[in-house]
Computed example of a mutant assay.
Amino acid sequence: MDQYEVLRLVGEGAFAKAFLARRRGGGAQRCVLKQIDTRKMPGKEREASQKEVTLLSQMNHPNIVTFFTSFQEMGNLYIVMEYCDGGDLMKKIYMQRGQLFSEEQIVDWFVQICLGLKHIHDRKILHRDIKAQNIFLSEGGTKAKLGDFGIAKMLKNTMELARTCVGTPYYLSPEICENQPYNNKTDIWSLGCVLYELCTLKHPFEACSLRQLVVRICRGRYAPPSPHYSPALRQLIGQLFKVHPRDRPSVTSLLRLPLMQSHLGTQVPNCRAVTAVNLHPKSHTVCLNGL
């Protein structure tokens, strides 16, 4: 810890604290220092923390929060990550105070979130906790990045189904609510929840109790977003909220949609928007190549 200057506390949980910090002698660049007290953690939570370090170290993509390093000291695990000065997406939504985002802004962020999620899914990893609070903004709010891999799960193959009920209640998929096996399509449902929130500034499924919330999620019924938005955007939400996982699109299919293709050029100026999305593992540049 001596090599870091702690500036302020930015978040706190049951076993962890997150600090805004700066490496001593490292110039003005700031970072987030996540301090996890592993001594007080049950075995499963301790294992999840170690898994987060492993997963973060494997991720290298402009739309995923950058992992710098990790170390252990005095019974604490420290994870050093990129600081996103725009805060998280949920805070941005609250700051709107009822004023709807433009469709241009919504799709721009959504494309970036999808690119980050594609990077994860291509590596046979489920995020399992996609929500507005785990999407971070930087560069004046223009860049969106996926973060918090604390409960992510790696699959042996793309068809393997996970069975652990995890996630945040508002973002749970019908298959998790019904205690059914699930795969990467559960992340797609949660992605739909985030898109809906960007369009309406509220959760798609709300209730006074967890039981009622589960019923509403399993029915897949939600108030339609404002007609202020294009039919293509409103239809996209409907595709993400298909009750049966097999009916939901993959993240690669999402990136092929005309609505998304029109924004991909702004993310990767030198690539032309055509029919297929390929991610080059070395550069992590997204290029669109014709089939």
Results as ranks from 00 to 15, higher is better:
residue 189 W to D: 10
residue 65 V to F: 06
residue 59 M to Y: 15
residue 98 G to W: 03
residue 220 G to T: 07
residue 88 D to S: 05
residue 117 L to Q: 02
residue 101 F to D: 06
residue 260 M to A: 10
residue 232 A to Y: 01
residue 4 Y to M: 03
residue 86 G to F: 06
residue 197 E to T: 12
residue 247 D to Q: 13
residue 21 A to E: 06
residue 52 E to H: 08
residue 236 L to R: 00
residue 104 E to G: 04
residue 47 E to R: 12
residue 33 L to P: 03
residue 117 L to I: 11
residue 277 V to L: 11
residue 225 P to W: 07
residue 217 I to W: 04
residue 265 G to E: 12
residue 111 V to W: 01
residue 190 S to L: 07
residue 187 D to K: 00
residue 253 S to E: 15
residue 242 K to S: 11
residue 135 I to T: 09
residue 127 H to T: 10
residue 221 R to Q: 14
residue 174 P to G: 02
residue 98 G to F: 03
residue 48 A to W: 09
residue 13 G to N: 00
residue 181 P to Q: 07
residue 253 S to C: 11
residue 76 N to I: 03
residue 152 A to V: 00
residue 131 K to L: 05
residue 104 E to Y: 12
residue 86 G to C: 06
residue 140 G to M: 09
residue 243 V to C: 05
residue 180 Q to A: 12
residue 214 V to T: 12
residue 239 Q to G: 10
residue 45 E to W: 00
residue 16 A to H: 00
residue 226 S to K: 05
residue 27 G to E: 01
residue 194 V to H: 10
residue 22 R to D: 07
residue 66 T to I: 09
residue 289 N to A: 15
residue 99 Q to W: 11
residue 178 E to G: 06
residue 195 L to T: 00
residue 180 Q to Y: 12
residue 21 A to D: 10
residue 45 E to V: 08
residue 288 L to T: 12
residue 42 P to L: 00
residue 281 P to Q: 05
residue 249 P to L: 10
residue 247 D to R: 14
residue 57 S to A: 15
residue 262 S to L: 15
residue 226 S to F: 06
residue 133 Q to I: 05
residue 149 F to A: 00
residue 209 S to F: 06
residue 30 R to V: 10
residue 123 R to P: 03
residue 264 L to M: 14
residue 162 A to V: 01
residue 202 K to H: 04
residue 125 I to C: 13
residue 153 K to V: 12
residue 218 C to R: 12
residue 119 H to Y: 14
residue 256 R to V: 02
residue 233 L to P: 10
residue 212 Q to E: 15
residue 204 P to N: 04
residue 145 K to T: 02
residue 231 P to K: 08
residue 179 N to V: 12
residue 28 A to M: 06
residue 77 L to N: 08
residue 214 V to A: 10
residue 195 L to C: 09
residue 63 N to G: 08
residue 53 V to A: 03
residue 259 L to A: 06
residue 263 H to N: 03
residue 115 L to Q: 14
residue 67 F to V: 05
residue 20 L to D: 06
residue 65 V to A: 08
